[in-house]
Amino acid sequence: MQQVKAVVAKAKGAPVEVVTINVPDPGPGEAVVKVQACGVCHTDLHYREGGINDDFPFLLGHEAAGVVEAVGPDVTAVAPGDFVILNWRAVCGECRACKRGQLQYCFNTHNATQKMTLEDGTELSPALGIGAFAEKTLVAAGQCTKVDPSARPAAVGLLGCGVMAGIGAAINTGAVARGKSVAVIGCGGVGVAAIAGSALVGASPIIAVDIDAKKLETAKAMGATHTVDSSQGDPVEEIKRICAEYYDGADGADVVVEAVGRPETWKQAFYARDLAGTVVLVGVPTPDMKIPDLPLIDVFGRGGSLKSSWYGDCLPTRDFPMLVDLYQQGRLDLDAFVSEEIGIDDIEAAFEKMHDGSVLRSVVIVDR
């Protein structure tokens, strides 16, 4: 066991604290990773606010990259010294989804068996099974995906959650491709990643929808062909108008990605899609939210698909190395998602910046 500094949320709504925690030596199927960089994701704020569950204290942080320090006795996929991106879907290989070759839908993803603790022995709940606002963290070895060690940790670590969720929602879940129109409602980090992914595969038009002018500017820089300020009018009608200009007879977008996670924006996404179009929900709702009232005939009459996207339906071992390669080739600008680099003591300030639209991601550089 070793002791390291880490960021912990001890109570609902209380400011996070930098404390000393205990990290066990890795057991079977486990690895200890020296964290280099970790993005500040809105999910971490959800944990602090009790929006996920009430299993306090939480060890926050999950969008991370680092170097494997030690592995358990039976671990062969990664070794000490490997540069890895951490993921929260270590697949089991044994469930029905895995056995039918759909590992990205694994029903039994898992985390480390042992628990990290506070100095007094209180067990910590690591965010998404990772807990990477820490100098070192203990994870299941399957949560470590080996990638090109020359890549910038602050940029590629964001594939561990938000960027992968957005790119995957568009490409994997929504099947966005050349010749398809896309609208993305909500242009935070995940929404902008969906726009970047849509641009990567040649979709057009790509319509960004938000109420924040700064976010719309960022969306355009990342590949949106059109922007819609939904505070100034009906975004559904504007999406339909734009798509009709591109494709004769279109009555909406082929794919609408909802990256907010609210009933009213989901309803906009539902009506903004074309006949036989697809709605992808990737924004994270709170437990109390309900799907808005919709006439069942509208659900039937429009056809198509209503999907939710969990982690962009990604398979980390397949998708992370590919996206890092595209980043290294200059075809996917992951650096653009890094708005600022901060220290481990600056996370409360980063939470505040989420609300004013001034950052896509604050990234904690752990070893600075």
Results as ranks from 00 to 15, higher is better:
residue 42 H to Q: 11
residue 246 Y to V: 08
residue 206 I to T: 07
residue 348 E to K: 14
residue 200 L to W: 12
residue 247 Y to N: 06
residue 17 E to R: 15
residue 278 T to P: 03
residue 334 L to F: 10
residue 237 E to V: 09
residue 44 D to Y: 09
residue 84 V to Q: 00
residue 201 V to H: 14
residue 102 Q to L: 15
residue 72 G to R: 07
residue 201 V to N: 11
residue 34 K to Y: 02
residue 312 G to L: 05
residue 63 E to N: 04
residue 262 R to S: 12
residue 208 A to P: 02
residue 29 G to S: 02
residue 297 I to Q: 07
residue 332 L to C: 11
residue 51 G to H: 15
residue 233 G to A: 09
residue 214 K to I: 10
residue 47 Y to F: 15
residue 336 A to M: 07
residue 171 I to P: 01
residue 118 L to S: 05
residue 249 G to F: 10
residue 55 D to C: 08
residue 102 Q to S: 12
residue 285 P to D: 07
residue 284 V to C: 10
residue 52 I to S: 05
residue 296 L to T: 11
residue 45 L to H: 13
residue 325 D to T: 14
residue 174 G to A: 03
residue 356 D to H: 12
residue 298 D to I: 04
residue 347 I to G: 08
residue 117 T to K: 08
residue 358 S to H: 12
residue 232 Q to V: 03
residue 198 S to Y: 05
residue 42 H to C: 10
residue 315 L to C: 06
residue 252 G to H: 09
residue 97 A to Y: 10
residue 276 A to T: 14
residue 56 F to S: 04
residue 266 W to F: 13
residue 3 Q to D: 04
residue 238 E to P: 02
residue 299 V to T: 11
residue 326 L to E: 12
residue 26 P to Y: 03
residue 140 A to P: 06
residue 344 I to R: 08
residue 115 K to P: 00
residue 368 R to C: 02
residue 119 E to F: 07
residue 266 W to K: 01
residue 250 A to V: 07
residue 182 V to Q: 02
residue 289 M to L: 15
residue 272 A to N: 06
residue 182 V to M: 09
residue 107 F to K: 13
residue 112 A to I: 02
residue 192 V to H: 03
residue 198 S to V: 10
residue 364 V to C: 05
residue 349 A to E: 15
residue 32 V to F: 04
residue 142 G to R: 02
residue 241 R to Y: 09
residue 2 Q to M: 15
residue 222 M to Q: 09
residue 161 C to G: 05
residue 121 G to V: 11
residue 20 T to G: 15
residue 254 D to I: 08
residue 255 V to H: 03
residue 133 F to S: 12
residue 354 M to H: 15
residue 308 S to A: 08
residue 100 R to H: 12
